[in-house]
């Protein structure tokens, strides 16, 4: 698993013989297409989602299959299309709002945080907002500070929102389908660098519950919690640790809200050490929340402090010489894990 084969990384999901493999991007498209075919209330709206099939080409073919009424190219108006999503969701539709870069979610903050997240509560449970907002995260595309951020912690902070961040094609399809069927606003973050990642995805229908972590690799000596593309960094680190006699267990929460606290605590109780890896900023971030959950829940089992590894607390720089310094890498994870197990 996760070995480099002709330059293509293999997804870490269990690979059953004979099962087909598709890319992360294809898994997303397949999930949306299947759900749109199943439920006429679903429509997709965003910048360049229709004729262009999105800038990452993930949505190619949906316009032909479902027509311009349901696959809608919008103006460059992030707040506006998010608002349209909220209004359409309240009145019986199930919109998927596409925000091209996660950095642009800053433009939809009012519509997501003050409107979508609060409508059900403020109305005493009468109104619901069954809306998906899909967007991206992740650096390393040499795209500089406004096209590289991982802002999922901002949304994970807000009661009323759910936040999913799949790492594998299998998870991407299963979580996307569940997000679309959920009666709450769900923000799904896709790492731009994962779209070409291949992995096993069964032909048959399946969904994955929001709020269920997945053990991507079993181990005994240390728990590494990793999200989104950091799962691959963690896998690489786990293999290196294996070669020096440290057995790492890798857990992917898959959703940060709801968070499967039980699975994280249980793993840390088993291994007695934990390290949390996420591409968001390390300050006030997802790593801090998860580390706190583990420290609380596994305190009497721990042999070392819980460590956090996140993105360097700087705007993402353009130059490759600097950008790569800001993102967690396997060697740093290995060194940190060794220090905990020493």
């Amino acid at each position: 698993m996760s070995t480099l084969e002709n330059g293509t990384r293999r997804s870490p999901a269990i690979h059953a013989p004979g099962e087909r493999e598709i890319t992360f991007g294809e898994a997303i498209r397949e999930a949306i297409a299947e759900e749109m075919a199943r439920d006429q209330r679903i429509f997709l709206i965003g910048e360049d989602v229709a004729a262009a099939g999105s800038v990452f080409k993930v949505l190619v073919g949906l316009l032909d299959e479902f027509g311009p009424e349901r696959v809608i190219d919008s103006p460059i108006s992030e707040a506006g299309i998010a608002g349209i999503g909220v209004g359409a969701a309240i009145t019986g539709m199930r919109p998927i709002v596409d925000i091209m870069f996660g950095d642009f979610t800053t433009l939809v903050m009012d519509q997501l945080i003050n409107q979508a997240a609060k409508t059900h509560y403020m109305s005493g449970g009468k109104l619901t907002v069954p809306m998906v907002l899909r967007t991206t995260l992740g650096a390393s595309r040499r795209s500089a500070a406004q096209h590289s951020q991982s802002l999922h912690a901002l949304f994970s902070h807000i009661p009323g929102l759910k936040v999913a961040m799949p790492a594998t094609p299998y998870d991407a399809k299963g979580l996307m389908k569940s997000a679309i069927r959920d009666d709450n606003p769900v923000v799904i973050f896709e790492d731009k660098m994962l779209y070409q990642e291949k992995g096993p995805v069964p032909e048959e229908e399946y969904t994955l519950p929001l709020g269920q972590a997945d053990v991507k690799r079993s181990g005994e000596d240390i728990t590494i919690v990793a999200t989104s593309s950091m799962v691959y960094v963690a896998l690489e680190a786990a293999e290196k640790l294996d070669s020096i006699g440290i057995s790492a267990e890798l857990i992917d929460p898959r959703t940060t809200n709801p968070l499967d606290t039980g699975a994280l605590i249980q793993s840390a109780q088993k291994t007695s050490r934990a390290l949390v890896l996420d591409e968001g900023y390390s300050q006030y971030g997802v790593t801090g929340e998860i580390a706190s959950v583990i420290a609380d829940g596994a305190f009497y089992y721990l042999d070392a402090p819980v460590k956090r590894i996140g993105a360097m607390n700087v705007p993402v720089p353009f130059s490759p010489a600097m950008e790569d310094l800001t993102i967690p890498n396997a060697d740093f994870v290995v060194e940190t894990a060794k220090s905990l197990c020493g």
């Binding site: 998010a82 359409a88 309240i90 009145t91 519509q111 003050n114 409107q115």
Partner: peptide
């Protein structure tokens, strides 16, 4: 939120059109 419902009302309009 002042002006906060402009998107919601417009989304309701979109919903009406689609339905």
């Amino acid at each position: 939120i002042v002006g906060g419902s402009a998107g919601i009302a417009t989304g309701a309009g979109m919903s009406i059109k689609l339905r």
